[in-house]
């Protein structure tokens, strides 16, 4: 089991991080490259960056949904994301690992705050899945990854909490470590291939909706075809 843990903390972890970072980078480069190609072929070369930035920022601001018809969902989701982003990066134990591996470190969250955020993430993660199952509409449009990812993340945080508090860990320490490391690697590995990619791709999605729909080459032909007026003079 030691060997497995070392594998997960060493080679596999590096592989997972590299795949996550390079994979997201690849999405970004391809999006920009494709945009350039589309723009080159398009007749209408106007391009508004303003709305893209504006929409990205709007999407990043969850508060405006709090009072809407899905307010509870929005609040839960926001709380979920706060812990999800802060704890893995700012947890003291993780920073220590970075220091040992690469010699770089940064300020950590106080233990008590990290604990609170961890519990919050686990709870909100579970609630989000429950909500998804509860409402017919969201249940119907859910894909497998929508069901799988929140529980995996909740598990990751739960196991992390147990590792940070070995006194209250009723399970085998090695086993929990292995699972924590393994699921962490798994989440990183699937980052560029699942909706987790939105962590880096949000602005690019906005860019695409700004560009691609406007500048579809051959769109005129498609319209003619759809209308069944092929070959007719316009």
């Amino acid at each position: 089991m030691d060997t497995l843990i070392e594998l997960g903390r060493g080679p596999l972890f590096r592989f997972a991080v590299a795949l996550a970072v390079l994979g997201l980078l690849r999405h970004a480069v391809l999006s920009l490259w494709g945009m350039r190609q589309v723009l080159r072929r398009a007749g209408d070369k106007r391009f508004a960056l303003g709305p893209v930035i504006q929409r990205t920022l709007v999407h990043l601001n969850p508060v405006r949904y709090f009072t809407g018809n899905r307010g509870v969902y929005s609040i839960l989701s926001t709380l979920f994301h706060v812990g999800l982003i802060l704890v893995p990066i700012l947890f003291a134990g993780h920073i220590r690992l970075w220091q040992r591996g690469l010699g770089i470190g940064w300020p950590a969250l106080p233990m008590s705050v990290a604990d609170a955020l961890t519990i919050l993430t686990v709870v909100t993660g579970v609630l989000l899945v429950v909500g998804r199952a509860w409402f017919v509409a969201s249940r119907e449009m859910s894909r497998p990854q929508d069901w799988l990812l929140p529980p995996l993340i909740a598990f990751e945080f739960l196991s992390g909490y147990l590792l940070a508090h070995p006194g209250s860990n009723p399970f085998d320490l090695q086993l929990v470590t292995l699972l924590h490391v393994g699921v962490g690697d798994l989440l990183l590995l699937v980052t560029p291939f699942t909706k987790i990619a939105h962590c880096a791709m949000l602005p690019f999605s906005q860019l695409v909706s700004e560009m691609a729909w406007k500048f579809v080459p051959g769109a005129g032909h498609d319209v003619v075809k759809t209308l069944g007026k092929e070959g007719q003079p316009i």
Binding site: L30, S31, G34, Q37, Q145, P192, K195, A197, M201
Partner: peptide, 21 residues
């Protein structure tokens, strides 16, 4: 039309980049 990656919903607007993808 621009292809959406089913998993990530990331769109690659230029279909020719599909091979490059």
């Amino acid at each position: 039309l621009p292809t959406f990656d089913p998993g990530t919903l990331v769109a690659h607007p230029d279909p020719y980049t599909a091979g490059l993808g």
